[in-house]
Design a protein around this nucleic acid. Structure first.
Lengths: 214, 214
DNA sequence: CCGAATCATGAATCGAGGTTCATATTTCAT
DNA sequence: ATGAAATATGAACCTCGATTCATGATTCGG
C-alpha cells in the first residue's frame, strides 16, 4: 500500500488533473460523452452498480478509451464530484451577487440550490455515495461548502442582520434544511420544490416554529 | 426478472422474516454475532466494501453459516436497517413520554436522536448507503420517520403550540437540522453534540435566525 | 500532404468475492 | 440415551467486471 501524501482540507485542492487532458477536438468530445454518461449512470445506480462497460457503451466508445482519460473508475467519480461542487457554488454566487440583504440572499441561495438539484438530481446520490467510494471526499464536500457559507453568515452577524448563534451551528442547520427539503421534493416526489414550501421555509428560519405561550 | 409484488409504503411492513430464525440457544448466539459483525463492518466500510468473508471471519463462523440465516448479502443489510429504525423510534418515544409541551418534546427528541447516532454511528452510513443497495429502503426509511413525526407536529399545531406552516415542510426542516447537526458533530468531529449546540438549535427553531430590521 | 502525436479499439486477462453443497457436529424433546 | 432436526464447516464453483495491451485509425502543425 503506497499511501500518497494525505489530502488535507486546503480550500483549493483540485484533483481535476487526475485526468489525462484531451488535446484534440475529437478527444474533447469523447471525454465529454464519457463524463455525461458517467454522471447519468452514477446518479441513477450509484458507483458500485455502474459498470465501466455501461459507461463506455452509453458514451459510444470502447472500454479502452475510458482508460485514456482516467486511470481508474474512482477517478471519474471524484472528477464529477468536484465538477458538480464548482458548478453549484458558481451558480449560487452568481445568483446572489446583487441581493439587498442577507435574508434575500438566503432565499435566492435556497432557490438556486433547489433548481440546481433539480437539474442535476444526481448530485445527492453522488455526494452521498462518496462516503464509501472516496471517504475523505464526502466530508470534504460538506465542510468545504460550509466554510464558504460561514463567511457570509459571519458577515451578516457582524452587521446585525443575523442573530448571534454559533455560526457553524446555524450553517449546518441551514444546510440540513435545504438538503432535506430538496430530498423530499426533488428526489422523493420527483417534482421541483413548490413555491409555497420555499416560503414556509423562509418563515420558519425567520420566525421560528413555535407560538409563544401566552 | 421476476418482479415480486411491489412493497408499498404500508406502515408496518416488516421484512424481518427474511431470515431463518434460529431455534436453539446456540443458533441465537451465532446469529447475534453475525449481526454485530455486519453492523460494525457496514458502518465502517459500507455495503459494497464489506465482504461476506469479513463478516463471518469477524463473527467467528464459517461462510456457509451465514447462509443459514440470510438468503443473501442484501437481506442482512435490510434487516439491520429495520432493526436500527425500530430501536431509534422506540428510544425517542420512550424518552419523550412525559414531556410537558411540544417544545420540550422536540428538545428531548433531538437529544435522544443525537445520543442514538452517537451510540450507533453507523446508522447514517447504513441508511445513506441504502439508496444504492435497496433503493426503496432509503426513501421508505425517511418517509416512515417523517410520517410518525408528522402526527405529533399536527397535534401541536391544533393545540396552537406550533405555527401553522405546511407540516410536512416543517417536519423535513427539523429532520434536516438534526441529521446535519449529527453529521457535523458525531460523524465529522467524532464527538457528541455539545450542549451549547443543542441550545442554539432550539433557539434557532424557536426564534428564527434573523434580527428584525428596525 | 506527411508523420509524430493523439486517440480509439475490444478481445483477453485476472482476481475477487458471493454462493453452494456434501459432509460433520451439536442440540434437545421424548 | 437416542435420533431427527438444527447448526456448522470450508473448499470449490462460478460469475462478473475492472483493467490491460497490441494493433489500428485520426488529427493537425509545419
Amino acid at each position: 500500500m503506497n499511501m500518497t501524501e494525505h489530502n488535507t482540507l486546503k480550500p483549493n485542492t483540485s484533483v481535476l488533473e487526475l485526468i489525462n487532458k484531451p488535446k484534440t477536438a475529437r478527444g474533447k468530445k469523447t471525454l465529454a460523452r464519457i463524463l455525461k454518461a458517467a454522471e447519468d449512470l452514477f446518479s441513477q445506480k450509484g458507483f458500485y452498480n455502474t459498470k465501466i462497460t455501461e459507461i463506455v457503451e452509453s458514451a459510444n466508445v470502447a472500454s479502452g478509451t475510458f482508460y485514456i482519460y482516467f486511470p481508474d473508475k474512482k477517478s471519474i467519480f471524484r472528477y464529477l464530484m468536484e465538477e458538480l461542487n464548482h458548478a453549484l457554488r458558481k451558480e449560487i454566487v452568481e445568483a446572489t451577487v446583487d441581493c439587498k440583504n442577507r435574508k434575500e440572499e438566503e432565499k435566492v441561495g435556497f432557490e438556486t440550490f433547489f433548481s440546481f438539484v433539480n437539474k442535476h438530481n444526481g448530485l445527492f446520490r453522488i455526494v452521498w455515495d462518496a462516503q464509501f467510494v472516496i471517504e475523505e471526499a464526502f466530508m470534504e464536500y460538506y465542510e468545504n461548502f460550509a466554510q464558504h457559507y460561514l463567511v457570509g453568515i459571519k458577515k451578516a452577524q457582524k452587521s446585525g442582520e443575523v442573530k448571534d448563534y454559533d455560526p457553524t451551528t446555524l450553517v449546518y442547520c441551514l444546510m440540513g434544511i435545504t438538503n432535506f427539503i430538496a430530498l423530499k421534493w426533488i428526489i422523493f416526489e420527483k417534482k421541483p420544490v413548490p413555491q409555497k414550501v420555499l416560503e414556509d421555509v423562509m418563515k420558519i428560519i425567520s420566525e421560528g416554529a413555535f407560538n409563544l405561550p401566552e
